[in-house]
Design a protein around this nucleic acid. Structure first.
Length: 916
RNA sequence: GGGUGCAUGGCUCAGUUGGUUAGAGCGCCACAUUCACAUUGUGGAGGUCAGAGGUUCAACUCCUCUUGCGCCCACCA
């Protein structure tokens, strides 16, 4: 006899069990040649991260997979770690020191980076602690950080390898520049958002005739200060005659040529476009092509520089206003039209990106993409859901070179060194000197550049010792893309253990992440895996939806619409959070969340708790399990039914987990446990609870259910299972299952096809239907519960008579019937209320009053419904095509159903006529 | 501009390869409290599965188009 409180209290159990698992070392996984490897690498959260619902969903899914595979006996490793998140972390620490009135420049690079490390030591494990609250069963001893010394080695190795292969180059290009973070960004880091802006029509007068103009349209008038040409389409009749003439750039009074280029769209604006090669990627291309000058008019902080003359030091948007005013004054502003445009935004601080000409480092991506495209096309990697394959492929097939240098301090510094004296010669090179060939440019640019793992003592070319390291650091994603193997200490193979780990666990099994991250991370990991490890990083990619609020907006702190998972854990418990999240996440569909959602999970936990409480309260210690009705002729129908139902559900759950249908697995567990096990089974056996067989069966189902539910709800299942275990579980030698000290190291329930019996399920459904009909009639007849009701079941079907007789006590209890008679014939009598169920008359009598009129009405409705169903079946069966073409079993089923309906109809009518 | 997802009872959503009596949770209505659980139980109301056309013996499910909403990508000055 075990006593449990009336309600499940998660707070009393969660931390205790988590500590227990950790102390026992259950999370640790080692290479085991006797087992299958199953490895997931965590999408490393930012060290600055705080657990949000996206993390909660992402990590719950991974934990389910890991716990499931661990229970199935695979050597299951969930590899944890955090990402140094260059810009994000630098921003956080900059904010922190700002409270002391400091800027990073005040501290200097070395001191500042030191402060970031301090910050990391102090706060960097917050997210890890929070993941533990979530129940994540990562092998924490392996926790890695993308700036660990050894991890950095991998990053440097990769950089050098790509350089040697000629896949890394430095170049002057117009890139995405964030004036607030003051760094370059990759295209992926500068997502476009729509803006409501203006299209400004500016008049540029001719140099030789100030009364004559060409009007150009622009959305960024401040860049006009850097214009070095105006371009028109060569086939544009309006402008053909002007090509080659010179305009006087207003405000600056510089002469700029009118050039012709096919890129110009005749229909847009005026058909004449100002060309600013230093501030626009298109204009840059045109500038290169036409040998234009590149005039950069802005400083890195987004203010105008000395080239901007009077506008110097103004912020770019302020300059925009002033320039427009000035042009207006000079009569050079034709008009302003409202214009919808889209512009890149910094993904860290949301500042509008400035396309900006600067020297950066790039990776040539096309050669890396090729094998990664092949791998996916050949099905070596599968995306779930499938549709993301197309997204991946179309991005990969149009891949652009990757800008990997960042002008920040926190990150992996490029392993690039410059020889001062060799560099001097290189500086003769200027970007607008188009007279050089590509190769010459490259040679000049690379003069004095030394790429090496460590700072060289002297220049290998000239022997100079005046050597300095490149100031830039690498894009954070340039380290993340190595995660699946660098986390295993690649390329360091100094220790046999490390080598073994990498060999055993790589390639990993599944990557679980959000679709937003396909380009940033997933695609690049595939490329890196193939390039550096010569093997794919994973076989499956599961992409779950984005967690949004109930209006469909992304949850974000700035919108104030976040639901904090820790608050939910505090209020409802971790298992409730996990279960609710999973059960509403249909494959790859976004999740619209509101707080009430978590009540369902909490209620389910409580249901499990109380059902277990009931079972444990009633279990006699002496019962020995293993006494299950394995024989299909066993007369114990109820046991056979519940076992069959459990093992059917289990089969579905396993299948759903294998195919990443987590919500369906969760719902399967939910509806089995609540609506079959609790609503029917426990009610059916209550009167027979002392029966050892009943006890064995109910404990067996509970034990196995808890194990199947464990990956989803680790804490409550452990808490209860420990108590079930204390009452004596089946002997492992008999069942072939492992029963450990903890549920998490015990076996996933063994499939028992021998216990699945659809016939018994059908028979029991008949019983449930009968009970429902009686309950339903009581309710229709408005019989109060305390009123005594007697029921006769009359059917000519001998099998059914046997069945009903056998389960008569259960029918009586569940349908609250006083006297129950089962008899072969029905004779109509006065004062009886009758309905028909699959060939049987169900007759109810009771002493009180009932509204016979209402009952007759209900019966009339039933007759109408039956008739219409009969008609539709008859039409179908009268159709030759249907009978000939549909599968025989479908036709047979329809025939049988029609027969039954016809029988029911006759009886219903007879009953109605008899009543009248 | 290209791609993609979604439209199913009052709300939020499930629905596997086309074959049911179209499901769930919440909400609503009625009844039930010495029973493991009111974080409960029992019964009920509520849906022409966005619209139009097509394929098929059979369409919520497949195809085309339309409408509305959402997301992603894009060198729309």
């Amino acid at each position: 006899m075990i006593e449990l409180s009336k309600q499940y209290n998660p707070k009393e159990t969660e931390d205790t069990w988590y500590k227990y698992w950790e102390e026992k070392g259950y999370f640790s996984a080692q290479p085991d040649p006797g087992k299958k490897p199953f490895c997931i690498v965590i999408p490393p959260p930012n060290v600055t991260g705080i657990l949000h619902m996206g993390h909660a969903l992402n990590n719950t899914i991974q934990d389910i997979l890991i716990r499931y595979h661990r229970m199935k006996g695979d050597s299951s490793l969930w590899m944890p770690g955090t990402d140094h998140a260059g810009i994000a972390t630098q921003n956080v620490v900059e904010k922190a020191i700002a409270k002391e009135g400091l800027k990073r420049q005040d501290l200097g690079r070395e001191k500042f980076v030191e402060r970031v490390w301090q910050w990391k030591e102090q706060y960097g494990s917050t997210i890890i602690r929070q993941l533990k609250k979530l129940g994540a069963s990562c092998d924490w001893e392996r926790t890695r950080f993308t700036m660990d010394e050894e991890y950095s080695k991998a990053v440097i190795t990769v950089f050098i390898e790509l350089w040697d292969k000629g896949l890394i180059y430095q170049g002057h290009k117009v890139i995405n520049w964030c004036p607030r973070c003051q760094t370059a960004l990759s295209d992926e880091e500068a997502p476009h958002h729509d803006l409501q802006g203006n299209l400004y029509y500016l008049k540029y007068p001719f140099k030789d005739n100030p009364d004559e103009f060409i009007t150009v349209a622009t959305t960024r008038p401040e860049t006009m200060l850097g214009d070095t040409a105006v371009a028109v389409n060569p086939r544009d009749r309006r402008y053909k005659k002007y090509i080659g003439r010179v305009l006087a750039l207003p405000l600056v009074n510089r002469g700029i040529k009118i050039i012709a280029d096919d890129m110009v769209d005749k229909r847009f604006g005026t058909g004449a476009v100002k060309v600013t090669p230093a501030h626009d990627p298109n204009d840059y291309a045109m500038g290169t092509k036409h040998g234009l000058e590149f005039v950069n008019v802005m400083r890195p902080d987004g203010r105008m520089n000395e080239k901007a003359g009077d506008y110097r030091d103004m912020d770019r948007f302020e300059a925009r206003e002033v320039i427009i005013e000035d042009l207006k004054e000079k009569g050079l502003l034709e008009k302003i039209e409202p214009h919808q445009l889209s512009a890149g935004h910094c993904y860290r601080c949301h500042t509008i990106i400035e396309p900006y000409l600067s020297k950066q480092w790039f990776v040539k991506m096309a050669p890396l993409a090729k094998p990664a495209i092949e791998a996916v096309k050949k099905g070596k990697i599968t995306f779930h859901p499938r549709r993301w394959t197309k997204v991946y492929l179309s991005w990969m097939e149009n891949i652009q070179d990757w800008c990997i240098s960042r002008q920040i301090w926190w990150g992996h510094r490029l392993p690039v060194y410059y020889c001062k004296s060799c560099r001097k010669q290189a500086n003769e090179f200027t970007v607008d000197s188009s007279q050089f060939t590509e190769k010459e440019k490259k040679d000049k640019e690379n003069r004095g550049v030394i790429v090496a793992a460590a700072m060289p003592e002297k220049c290998p070319v000239c022997g100079s010792t005046e050597i300095s390291q490149e100031e830039d650091v690498l894009d954070t994603w340039f380290s993340s893309w190595l995660w699946p193997f660098a986390a295993f200490y690649w390329p360091d193979d100094s220790s046999p253990q490390r080598r073994k780990d990498l060999e055993y666990f790589y390639p990993t099994a599944v990557l679980v992440t959000a679709p937003e991250i396909i380009f940033f991370w997933v695609a690049r990991m595939i490329m890196a895996g193939l390039e550096f490890k010569k093997d794919l990083p994973f076989k499956d990619v599961y992409l779950h939806g984005t967690v949004r609020d109930r209006e469909g907006k992304k949850m974000s702190k700035s919108l104030g619409n976040v639901i904090d998972p820790l608050e939910i854990i505090n209020e409802y418990g971790t298992d409730a959070l996990r279960f609710s999240l999973i059960s509403i996440t249909a494959q790859g569909q976004d999740v619209f969340l509101s707080k009430e959602r978590f009540e369902q999970g909490r209620n389910f936990c409580n249901k499990i708790w109380n059902a277990s409480r009931f079972i444990l309260m009633n279990l006699d210690q002496a019962v020995i399990a293993a006494d299950l009705p394995a024989d299909k002729n066993d007369p114990d129908m109820i046991s056979r039914w519940v076992l069959s139902r459990f093992y059917s559900a289990l089969k579905e759950v396993s299948r759903d987990l294998e195919t990443f249908k987590f919500n369906e697995a969760a719902n399967q567990l939910y509806s089995f446990f609540w609506h079959e096990f609790c609503d029917w089974y426990l009610e059916l056996i209550k009167q027979d609870i002392k029966n050892p067989r009943v006890q064995a069966v109910m404990r067996h189902v509970l034990d196995n259910f808890l194990r199947a539910a464990h990956p989803f709800m680790p804490f409550i299942t452990e808490e209860l299972w420990q108590r079930v275990k204390d009452t004596g579980l089946p002997v492992p030698q008999v069942t072939g299952e492992a029963i450990g000290e903890s549920i998490m190291v015990s076996s996933w329930p063994k499939e028992r096809k021998d216990l699945i019996d659809k016939k018994i399920e059908g028979k029991m459904s008949g019983i449930f239907e009968l009970i429902n009909v009686i309950r339903n009639m009581r309710s229709e007849l408005e019989v109060p519960l305390h009123e005594t009701v007697n029921v006769k079941i009359c059917t000519g079907d001998k099998t059914k008579i046997g069945l009903y007789r056998k389960l008569a006590p259960q029918i009586q209890t569940l349908a609250k019937v006083h006297d129950l008679h089962i008899m072969p014939q029905y004779v109509q009598a006065r004062g009886e209320f009758v309905t028909v169920l699959s060939g049987a008359h169900i007759v109810i009598t009771f002493t009180g009053e009932a509204d016979a009129q209402k009952f007759r009405q209900k019966m009339g409705q039933k007759i109408v419904k039956t008739e219409s169903e009969i008609r539709s079946k008859e039409t179908a069966l009268a159709n030759d095509n249907f009978v000939k073409r549909a599968p025989a079993e479908v036709v047979e089923k329809e025939r049988a159903r029609l027969q039954e309906l016809k029988g029911t109809l006759i009886k219903l009518k007879a009953v109605r006529d008899g009543l009248a």
